[in-house]
Simulated assay, not measured.
Amino acid sequence: MSDTRAEIPIIDAHQHFWNLSTNYYPWLQDPDPIPFRYGDYSALKRNYLPADLRRDIGSYRVVKTIHIEAEWDRSRPVAETEWLHDLSRREGLPTVCVAHAALDAPDADETLYRQSRVSIVRGIRHKPTAAGSPGEAKRGAPGSMDDPQWRKGYAILGCLGLSFDLQTPWWHLDAASELARDFPNTQIIINHTGLPADRSPEGLAAWRSALEKVATCPNIAIKISGLGQKGRPWSLESNAPVIRDAIAIFGADRAMFASNYPVDSLVASYGTIVAGFLAAIADRPMAEQYQLTHDSAERIYRL
């Protein structure tokens, strides 16, 4: 990579911190592990703080980061945000955050209001109910994007000027399209490239079709991240076509780089992920490369 490419500014649009010595993260601290798409995640059960991220970033020019809620104790969602606010003031990272609120909870309005009052909050993530495979996917499940109670909470986001980070498999993006059209003033950011876990020709074709349909909604963007595969190291050969397809579908102005660190340390070093992404977009005009690594995230997350 040339010196110019090494200096390209990066906003990491999806990263996590946790301090297991002082805070409670059930998935990292409870004795029974959760089902996890990368398999064994025991290597994540350690503190991960700004100094660790800076070490992993190395010489890359990461100028800002966006912290996504890390499944902190669900009974105290605002406590994570307050901890991150203090961390940001002390350490300079994260720059902003996406907080958690259970949109279908009876007190969703109160939680959303409290989250919105913290200055570093830009949006909310609450993973809707999802089926385990395309064949199991059905519309209208409780806790899904179709659920009237879930939508009641979602409707508050626009009133508070908050965006929504959507983590759901691609086979639920039809519901996301309807959500986007029903609430056109709320920005949706799809997490982890729509989770294209099935890399067979048929699986990728279905993933592309789902992205093409949801990308017709102008208020939906996508984060290109989370491309690891269970039992396999991150590779440019397997991931470059996915990266390029996602960008071709959404355009450089609605797509952005994200590391998903430290979760994706299970499949690659930070440098491998950044270098792979930059290699995959190297044939694009420099202005588009800057959009993908920096400008789109800056605009969409209102940095």
Rank of each mutant, 00 (worst) to 15 (best):
N23A: 12
S59P: 08
T81G: 04
F250G: 04
P106K: 13
E202T: 12
A176N: 04
R122P: 00
I281C: 06
S269R: 04
P262W: 01
R181I: 06
I57G: 03
M286S: 11
E237C: 10
A205G: 10
L49C: 08
L162Q: 01
I10Q: 07
A141Y: 00
A206K: 10
Y41C: 07
C97F: 02
Y25W: 09
M1D: 04
R114L: 13
R232L: 15
P218V: 06
I11D: 02
Y41R: 09
E136H: 06
D73V: 09
N239P: 01
I66L: 15
Q229S: 11
S163L: 14
P184Y: 05
F250K: 11
L103R: 06
Y270C: 02
I124V: 13
A108T: 14
D3M: 15
Y113G: 01
D165P: 04
P134T: 08
P285K: 10
S88M: 04
I249G: 01
I281S: 02
A99Q: 09
G132E: 13
Y301V: 01
E110I: 13
I300L: 15
V214E: 01
R199S: 02
E71W: 09
R46T: 12
S116Y: 00
N23E: 13
R299K: 15
V62A: 08
G132N: 13
L303G: 05
A130W: 03
D245E: 15
D146W: 12
I281M: 07
P142Y: 06
F277N: 02
A206S: 13
S177Y: 08
W27M: 09
A197K: 08
Y154K: 07
I243C: 03
A248K: 13
M286Y: 11
A215M: 09
P77G: 07
A246V: 13
D104V: 00
L236K: 07
L84G: 00
R117S: 10
I190P: 05
A279S: 14
R61E: 04
V214Y: 10
E202D: 14
D107C: 06
R114P: 00
